[in-house]
Amino acid sequence: MNYLMRRLATFPLVLLGVSILVFVAIRMVPGDSITAMLGTEAGLLTPAQRDSLAAYFGIDQPWFVQYWRWIGGILHGNLGISVTYGRPVLDVIVERFPLTLELAILSMIIALAVGMPAGIFAATHNEKLSDLGVRIVAMIGQSTPSFVLGLLIIYTLSAGFGVLPAMGEFAPLWQDPLRNLSQLILPAITLGFAFAASVTRISRSAMLDVLSDDYVRTARSKGASARSVIWRHALPNALIPVVTLSGIEFGYLLGGAVIVEQIYALPGLGRMVLDAIQQRDYALVQGAVLFIAFNFMIVNLLVDLAYVALDPRIRLGEP
């Protein structure tokens, strides 16, 4: 409990750092947001119109006033107004986040469903040909960038089967679950492949470590069946590194998969931030980055807490 409190206490500090960093960085991007928003039409604005637009978005003030207002707003749940969307930043983020969350969950399900059995299989067939096969595939999987795999999948589908991945208007899960899944399954496989490869490698090595431990040998010598040794004795302990890896990876995925969203034309968080950076949409970039950093920290904290649940011997926060 003490540990949890101390960890939570560092949150505001790190978030403050992230907020300053993103605030300063996005303001260093050359060009201004009003020109970026209106394009060539910005030239038609009278100075008075330009001033009133700047005042509306709050970008007419000196930077420290802007920062102060922004932080003050956050404490009241107000992240400002997006220049590109003309709507509150929080609304835009809340609209985009479900897709990113769903994609992250689907990829993790794929990674765990494929990676763990593969890793356990390889560990129990250590140094056999089948182990080598699993390891080679996992190594290749880990070395395949998502954009290479994504393009290969699209190419194979279109050249081999004459079908294109379902794109077009994105259907949220609660409106049209089937269409939603058909749109997300290929991106999820694309992201899940390398993820599954990492899970395979780590479950294999964790399982091998555990299988050579004394208590597993004891269980074997007591006559426990091979299946019971693996599932009841070895697996719970081998899970700890798998949880760590999956948690961290999941945390990254919650930040949006910029490139995969780009390839499959998905309106997720990653592409939104990319566009917002290019549009100099200050409020949206700031809000989104802070939101992503917060999620990342929460997921990391949950991973730490999961250790304790899996292994009561671990005491967090002790050096």
């Binding site: 500090l13 750092g17 993103v22 990254y252 949006g256 950093a293 990342f296 920290m297």
Partner: peptide, 23 residues
């Protein structure tokens, strides 16, 4: 703590931001 801030900042987005700032 500074490193924590950089780590909490999504890696690819940090790179994107730096590239956009510097061209």
């Amino acid at each position: 703590r500074i490193m924590d801030v950089l780590l909490a900042f999504p890696a690819i987005l940090l790179a994107l931001l730096i590239v956009t700032v510097a061209g």
